[in-house]
Design a protein around this nucleic acid. Structure first.
Lengths: 215, 215, 215, 215
DNA sequence: CATGAATGAGTATTCATTCAT
DNA sequence: GATGAATGAATACTCATTCAT
C-alpha cells in the first residue's frame, strides 16, 4: 500500500510506515522542531518559532513538510518505532522475569535522551493528537507496550518472582508514568545519566525503599 | 488604571489569598471549566467551549471572571491550598518516618478526586503557566512539598527506616510523578478508589514488587 | 412639540430643548461622568467606570439615563446653552468692537471652569459625535458663535479698530482654538484663574507680544 | 519569550530610534492608517477599517506590523523626529529673538501638511497614548520643544524684543495650541497654504490685531 | 432603585497554511 | 528552496445595553 508518490519532495499523503524523504536540511528542521516541541509543547509551539530558529520564513517550512502535524508525526513515529523494536527484542527470547523487567526498564530509560521531545509531546499533547486519525498508531503502540509489560509481570507472578498481590496493570501504569515523567526534568548534562536513573528505578521497584532486615 | 471594584461581581485585581467572590453560578462555571481543562488542557480549551457548555455566550463569562487565567487560577490555588495544608498537617507532629511517608502518599492520593482537573492542568500546562508571574505560587508550593517529602525521606534514612543508598530527591520525584500521572487515567467510577491506589502505591514503594523471601 | 413623557423617570426620546428630569442623584451622576469624560474622552470612558465611581453596577445607570450618549448630550447641551446665551448677551447692545471682543473672550474663558468636561469632549470626540444626528446642534451652535465673532471682527475692521489686513475667519479660528485648548491643561487650583487667562489672552491678541515702541 | 526576528518582515521588538523595515507596501499602509487616525482618532479607528481600505483582511496587517500601536508609533515618531530636528536647527545659531520666533512658527506650520495625521492623533489621543511606556518619547519631545520656545521668549524679553509683562510659558502654550489645532481644519487644497497661515499667525502674535496708531 | 446575569456585536490579535514570484 | 504577501478561521476579551428579580 501507498506505493505512489515515493521520491516526491513533500510527504503529502504519506502514512506511517513509508519513510519520509531524507535530507540533511529536513532532518535538521525536525530536530530543531523537536527541541521546541519538547520545551513548549506541540500546540504551544508555532511554525513561526520553528522557522525563526531555522533562519527562514514560516511559509518556507512547507517546502519540506506538509504540515505542522507531519513534523510531529515524524518525531513520534521514530520514537515509537525504536521503542517497539527494543521492547520486542527485550522479551524475544523469554527467560527470567526479573531479567526481562530490568531490560524493559533499561529500554524505556534509553529512550529518554534520543527521544526526549517525543516523550514530552506525548505527555503534554496526547489528548489532542489522539483525536486525529493520523495518530492512531499512538494507541496501537501503547497497547502493545502494555501487553509486553503486563505479560512479563504476570509471568513473574506465576513463577513467584513478583508478589502475587499486585495488580499488573496498575503496576505497569505506575512504572510507565514514573519513567516517562522523567523526561520533564531530565537534563543530559546533569550529574546522572539515564543508566543511573534506570538502576535507581529498578532497585526501588524491585525491593522498595525499606531495608530488607527492617520488616 | 484599573479602578477598584467594591462589591462588583468580577474578581478584578484580587490576589492569591483573598477569597474569590462566592456565587453558586460562579462555582458551577469553575467546575465546568475544570472538567474541560482536565480533558483538553488549559491552552487547548477555549472560552467558547466553556461558555457553550454553560449555555451562555463566551463574552458572558467575563461577567464572572476577569480572564481565562483567573479561572484556572482559582482551580489551581484551591488545589495547592489543600495540598499544602494537608502536607503540613501530615508532618506537623513528626514521628515514625514510615508512618509519615504513608500519610504523605495518602494525602496526595486524596487530592486525585477533588482536584483531578488542577493536577492534570499542572502536568499539561505547567511550562506555560509558570511563565506568568501571577502563577509564581506554583513553584513556591512545589518547593515546599519537595522539602517536606525529602525531609521525611532523609530522616527515615538517618533512622534506618529507609535504605541509605537511595537519592531522596530522585525518589521524591519518582513518587510524585507516578502519583500525579494517575490523574490522567483515574476515573472515580472505576473499580478502584483512591485509597486502594494509595495502598498499592505504598506497598510497591516500601517493599518493591519482589517477594521478601526471594532475595 | 414633545409634550408627552414629561415627568417620566427616564429621558427616553427626549430632544435637546426639553429639560431632562431633574434629580440630585442624576445630577451627581452627570457630574461624575463629566469628570471621567474630561479626563479620558467620551469614547474611552466606559459606563462601567462611571458606575464604579458612583458605587453602583453599570446596568443600574440605565435607570437614570437612556444611554451613554444621553449623558454626554446633557453635558454638551448645557455648555452650549450657556455659551450661546452669553455670546448673544455680550453683543446684544452692540457698541465698541474692542469692548465687544474683550467681552467675547471673557465669556469663552468663563466657560473653562464650569464646562471643562464639555469643552474637552468636544475637542477629543467631536469628529465622532457629529456623525450622530442627535448632536446636530453642535454644528449649529458653532456656526452661530462663529457668526458673532466674525461679525464683531469685521465691524471692528470697518471702524478701524482692528487691522484690515487680517482674515476674520482665520483670526476667529485661531482665537477659538487657543482658548478651548486651554481646557486640556487648565487646573482650577493652579496659580492663574480664568480671568487672568482671559486678560493675558486679550492683551496678546490685541497688541501682540512686541512692545509698541519697538516697531 | 519573544524570539528575535532576524530578517523577518514584522517590526517586533524594535525601539524608537531603530529604523523600521522599509517596504513600499508597508509605507502605503502607514499612510493609509495615518489618514484614518487623523479623521477618526487612533482609538476610534479599527484595524479592520485600515485593512478594508487597503483591500486586505485585518489579520493580514499583522504581516507588516506588530500591533496597531506600532503603526501609530511610526507615524508619531516620524513627526517628532522632524519637529525636533527643525526646532534645534532653527535656534542653533542663536540671533535676533524675533527672527528665531518667526522661524519656530514657520517650522511648526511646515509640519501641518506632512504630519497632519500625527498632529491630529496627538491632540485627540494623547491622554491615552501617554499612559503607555512605549510612548514616553512624546512627553520628552514636548518638554524639549517647550524649552526651546520659552528660551527664545525669555531671551527676547531680556533684550526688549518682547513685552516683559507676558508669561513665557503661557504664551508658548497659547501659540502651540493655536498652531496645532489648525491641523483639525486645515486642508492642503484650500485657498491658503501653510506659509500663509504662518505669516498670518506671526503677524497677530507679534503685533496683535489692533492697528499701531490706534493705541 | 438596584442587582446579577446575560446578550450581541464588536475589538485586536494569532497562526497554520497557500501561492505567485 | 526561499520570499513576501496574503487568507480565513480562530482566539481572548470588551462593552453598551437589557431585563427578570
Amino acid at each position: 500500500m501507498d506505493t505512489e508518490n515515493d521520491g516526491a519532495p513533500r510527504g503529502r499523503g504519506r502514512r506511517h510506515g513509508a519513510a519520509p524523504p531524507a535530507s540533511e536540511r529536513r532532518d535538521a528542521l525536525v530536530r530543531l522542531a523537536a527541541g521546541l516541541f519538547a520545551e513548549q509543547g506541540f500546540q504551544a509551539t508555532t511554525v513561526r518559532q520553528i522557522a525563526d530558529q531555522a533562519g527562514i520564513l514560516s511559509g518556507s517550512l512547507y517546502h519540506h513538510f506538509d504540515s505542522k502535524e507531519s513534523i510531529v508525526d515524524e518525531i513520534l513515529s521514530s520514537f515509537l518505532d525504536d521503542l517497539l523494536r527494543d521492547h520486542r527484542a527485550a522479551v524475544a527470547d523469554g527467560g527470567d522475569p526479573r531479567r526481562l523487567l530490568t531490560e524493559l526498564i533499561a529500554v524505556a530509560h534509553a529512550c529518554l535522551e534520543p527521544h526526549r521531545a517525543a516523550i514530552t509531546v506525548l505527555q503534554n499533547d496526547r489528548c489532542y493528537l489522539r483525536r486525529l486519525s493520523r495518530f492512531d498508531y499512538l494507541d496501537r503502540a501503547e497497547r502493545e507496550v502494555r501487553r509486553i509489560w503486563t505479560g512479563v509481570l504476570r509471568d513473574g507472578q506465576d513463577r513467584g518472582a513478583f508478589r502475587s498481590d499486585l495488580d499488573p496493570g496498575l503496576t505497569y501504569r505506575t512504572a510507565r508514568d514514573a519513567i516517562w515523567a522523567t523526561a520533564r526534568w531530565y537534563r543530559p548534562d546533569g550529574p546522572l545519566d539515564t543508566g543511573d536513573l534506570a538502576r535507581h528505578f529498578t532497585r526501588v521497584l524491585f525491593d522498595g525503599i525499606v531495608p530488607e532486615q527492617h520488616t
